[in-house]
Design a binder for these strands. Structure first.
Length: 733
RNA sequence: GGGCGCAUAGCUCAGCGGGAGAGCGCUCGCUUCACACGCGAGAGGUCCCUGGUUCAAUCCCAGGUGCGCCCACCA
């Protein structure tokens, strides 16, 4: 054994060995009937490991490894999300480089190309999961677009459809002109942009003056169908019921009163464009107004006004403003900074459009999940996130589940020429209503999260009643980030209750967000990301896991190199104390029969820490667990115990107890530092630590703990003075 | 505009009603035979501000200030 522990090579070797020996597999080392299941969040199939993944793996794996050692039948489920828009994006970029496009290829060829592309470039992240030592059962890897998984998605859709919870509606939705698809509110990001607020006069139809409105989007003026003011706004009450003339198109529209208008903003009068603004849409529907569309799905001007058709919004805005200016109707142009919605994938500005989409009604579907959360049968940790999960679900609007892209699960809906819709899991022969054989399948695919919602049981073979499903559902634990609570966690809960009749898991650990070193958010676009692969490469997976656990305590933590460094020192310290105890050990076997006070004391401390670790893990306080392990190793095991017995190591009894104590220490450390502990374990065992039995509760040393203070005191005196202090151990009992 | 969280040693963070802590950094001393990625000793803090509750507050409460995150349809 070298004096300097080098994780490189050692870690990869154990990762291969564990997997090759089947020790990552579900049930490996199980010594009891109870199961423990963590269906790990499936990363995007095109994704690369980021710090968030690394953290949730470190947390989940620490728990999973503990449970495995405790003899549970453990399933740590890995896999991929097909990630509809994200993957389609990546492949489209690739195609653009080749000078072609998905439109040119056509749907079928595009989907084929995407599969091929994934086989070549996708799926690398599981390699990175392996490299951090995550003991997932890689032999059970699933992907949400696998044929078997797709069956589950179809079954879910048909189930909801037959319950009458899936419906089609023409509403305003978030439209990404780049992807040419609808997006749910949860797929947007918001950004502040510099804009211009124009105040424009709308002449009154009776020629008695004008009413001025403020807008940031003059290009939507052709879609105006009303001007609205607040009912209590005395400035305008005399105008309500009159008509105004929309500039440029010179259309007469009513002036209406609606409480949704904010009297303090702009002029207090709002132009109503139901086709291009969610609030206007609401007001429009409430007043029964028409919904003309001035802008098309491509983001360009529609043929609503022939002379503007095909122009960009910018160009149309210029024409319209010029028109107003010439007639003295442009009152003011002022700088205005505000927040706009962007597509989270391409960062293009969202175009609110009215569009016919499929929706999933949430009203009834969410009720059992709400009950489960309120009754705490499912618990989010920390508590603040539990409240957030409930609030989010209570306020969850109906879910827009259709997307106009090609990569994903095509809706199992067929329409006949008479407009009847048939919903079947697989190709129907004829329309269910009129028997027409001419059926056209919906072009839309499902929101990616629709399939993710089934993860805890679709990965186990549902809708078939497989033995795995019976054994591993319901599961136990989820470790994930805040941003995914509404998108995924809540949806797994209601899908699980609806289809399986049981909650999918009991505990959801919402971990901290790791910020960049400077406290900013880690993001690719800011260039603030920290690549965990590099960190693992330089510090090792063990040190990285330890560091991440230490960073996991509060809500948001800056990435801290010193936490990793602490982990690295811990591995090295452990390595070296093991050298001391294992070198020249001869044929001495671990033998836990303590003689001296310090021996009884270290065994008691190990036992005490075992209980403490179990308790902190149960609270999901991983930072505290890491802290306790650090001090147990450094202060107690190395500085006190090892120093105390060092002069007597040649005595077989002393050595035997030391090896027994080391065994216990390695077991406690293994869930956090799996590699270095397994490497040391292998120095004196044929068996594998990963499936070694976790220490059983044992109170036989508890009585020795009270001697702690005296031992430390005596040792401190000895160090300062060189004078040994006699301790009458037995008299302490 | 709502919701949540954070402000403690130079840095990153624990603690949370009665003694102010860890790791790193810093100072001093150790080529001690497991480890200099080490050992020992030490310096360093009006625990953001102002009030309140209490015998007692860094910790509880109210307000303020400064940050951060999430949610939201102010054109």
């Amino acid at each position: 054994m070298e004096p300097l522990y080098t994780p490189q090579g050692v870690e990869e070797r154990w990762q291969r060995t564990w997997e090759e020996e089947g020790l990552y597999k579900a049930g490996a080392g199980a010594r009891r009937e109870e199961t423990f299941v963590d269906a790990h969040p499936p990363p995007n199939v095109t994704g690369e490991l980021h710090t968030g993944h690394a953290l949730q793996l470190a947390l989940g794996d620490a728990v999973v490894r503990t449970k495995r050692m405790q003899g549970f039948d453990v399933l740590f489920q890995p896999g991929y999300d097909h990630a509809g828009i994200s993957t389609q994006n990546a492949v489209e970029k690739h195609l653009a480089k080749e000078g072609t496009s998905r439109q040119e290829l056509g749907r079928e060829a595009f989907v084929e190309r995407t599969w091929a592309w994934l086989h070549e470039y996708g799926g690398t992240i599981m390699t990175q999961f392996r490299r951090i030592g995550a003991s997932l059962d890689y032999s059970r890897e699933r992907m949400t677009l696998d044929p078997e998984y797709t069956r589950a998605v179809m079954r879910f859709f048909v189930h909801l459809y037959r319950k009458g919870w899936i419906y089609r509606a023409n509403r305003i939705i978030n439209w990404c002109p780049h992807h040419r698809t609808s997006l749910s509110d949860l797929e947007l990001i918001h950004a502040d942009v510099d804009d211009t607020l124009s105040t424009i006069r709308y002449p009154l139809a009776d020629g008695s003056g004008h009413i001025a409105i403020a807008t940031v989007r003059p290009a939507t003026i052709p879609g105006d169908v009303a001007v609205a003011v607040h009912p209590d706004d005395e400035r305008y009450s005399h105008l309500v019921g009159k008509e105004a003339i929309v500039p440029f198109v010179e259309r007469r529209v009513p002036i209406i009163a609606d409480e949704r208008v904010e009297p303090d903003f702009g002029t207090g009068a709002l132009k109503i464009t139901p086709g291009h603004d969610p609030k206007d849409f609401e007001i429009g529907r409430a007043h029964g107004l028409p919904e003309p569309m001035a802008i098309g799905p491509d983001g360009l001007m529609s043929d609503l006004v022939p002379e503007l058709a095909g122009l960009t919004q910018k160009e149309a805005e210029g024409r319209i403003l010029d028109w107003c200016k010439e007639r003295g109707q442009l009152e003011e142009r002022e700088h205005y900074r505000h927040s706009v919605a962007l597509c989270e994938r391409c960062h293009n500005r969202i175009e609110p459009l009215i569009s016919l989409q499929w929706w999933c009604a949430m009203g009834e579907l969410k009720q059992p999940a709400l009950a489960a959360l309120r009754e705490r049968r499912v618990r989010f940790h920390p508590e603040s996130q539990h409240r957030f999960a409930i609030d989010s679900l209570e306020n969850a609007p109906d879910w827009c589940i259709s997307r106009q892209i090609w990569w994903g699960h095509q809706l199992p809906l067929w329409e006949c020429p008479n407009g009847h819709v048939t919903c079947e899991e697989s190709d129907p022969d004829a329309c269910a209503e009129c028997g027409s054989p001419e059926l056209a399948r919906s072009e839309d695919v499902l929101d990616t999260w629709f399939s993710s919602a089934l993860w805890p049981f679709a990965t186990l073979g549902w809708p078939d009643r497989t033995p795995e499903l019976a054994r591993y559902y319901p599961g136990d634990l989820q470790t994930t980030g805040r941003e995914i609570i509404r998108l995924w966690e809540n949806r797994m809960i209601f899908a699980g209750l609806e289809l399986m009749g049981e909650i999918p898991f009991e505990d959801v650990v919402i971990h901290s967000t790791v910020l960049a070193r400077d406290g900013r958010r880690m993001s690719k676009s800011l260039g603030t990301g920290i690549d965990p692969r590099e960190v693992i490469g330089t510090h090792g997976a063990d040190a990285t896991r330890y560091g991440l656990l230490k960073m996991s305590s509060t809500q948001d933590v800056r990435f801290s190199d010193s936490m990793l460094e602490e982990g690295r020192k811990l591995t090295n310290k452990l390595w070296n104390v093991s050298r001391l105890l294992l070198t020249d050990a001869g044929s001495v076997e671990p033998d836990e029969s303590p003689g001296s006070l310090e021996e009884r004391w270290i065994l008691a401390r190990l036992e005490q820490t075992r209980a403490a670790i179990e308790e902190t893990f149960a609270r999901f306080d991983f930072a505290e667990a890491a802290n306790q392990l650090y001090h147990l190793t450094f202060d107690d095991f190395c500085d006190w115990y090892a120093e105390a017995i060092k002069p007597r190591l040649s005595e077989p009894a002393v050595r035997g107890t030391a090896l027994a104590a080391l065994e216990r220490l390695l077991k406690l450390l293994h869930p956090v530092l799996p590699h270095v502990t397994e490497e040391i374990w292998a120095q004196f065992h044929e068996s594998r630590l990963i499936v070694a039995p976790w220490p059983e509760p044992d109170d036989s040393y508890a009585a020795d703990l009270h001697a702690l203070d005296r031992v430390q005191e005596a040792a401190a005196i000895f160090r300062r003075s060189g004078v040994a202090v006699e301790l009458e151990g037995d008299e302490q009992r």
